[in-house]
């Protein structure tokens, strides 16, 4: 270090800090790309619209048939379970009970079961 002078050390130090800051910014950019991908994969994987669609179908069924058990209603019930298994790879089952008094209104307890091997969904709803 014989001939080196010690001027400008602050500038060198600030240069080092700027380099470190750039490094961390690059890390953040890297992570942001990963976060977008995993979020979108998670959303696509989760059968949100399948479950909502199934609930609507079952409520339509309850509107039409209630809790009566006859060949017509059994056929529609079998449509829903068989087509779910065939086209959505989902085990689906539902039951409709007799109307009960819920806060002064007669509502039927409906249980819904959905399982596609990844996501399991069970619900009891008074409809």
């Amino acid at each position: 270090m014989a001939c080196m002078n010690e001027d400008g050390q602050w500038i060198v130090l600030m240069g080092l800090l700027a380099a470190l800051a750039l490094f961390f910014l690059a890390l953040i950019i890297n992570q942001s790309a990963l976060v977008g991908q995993t979020t979108a994969e998670g959303v696509l994987e989760f059968p949100k619209s399948d479950i909502r669609d199934l609930r609507t179908a079952i409520f339509d069924y309850v509107d039409k048939f209630g809790n009566t058990v006859d060949p017509d209603s059994q056929a529609v019930r079998e449509d829903i379970t068989r087509i779910s298994l065939e086209r959505k790879n989902a085990v689906v089952g539902f039951t409709v009970g007799t109307p009960q008094d819920v806060s002064g209104r007669p509502l039927r307890p409906v249980t819904i079961h959905y399982y596609n091997g990844v996501t399991e969904y069970d619900e009891t709803v008074y409809y």
């Binding site: 890390l27 950019i29 890297n30 790309a33 991908q37 994969e41 696509l44």
Partner: peptide, 14 residues
């Protein structure tokens, strides 16, 4: 460290 957006990564538009 920045990843390249390839045609396989279409999850967000999908």
């Amino acid at each position: 460290t920045t990843s390249i957006y390839t045609p396989g990564d279409t999850h967000i538009p999908d």
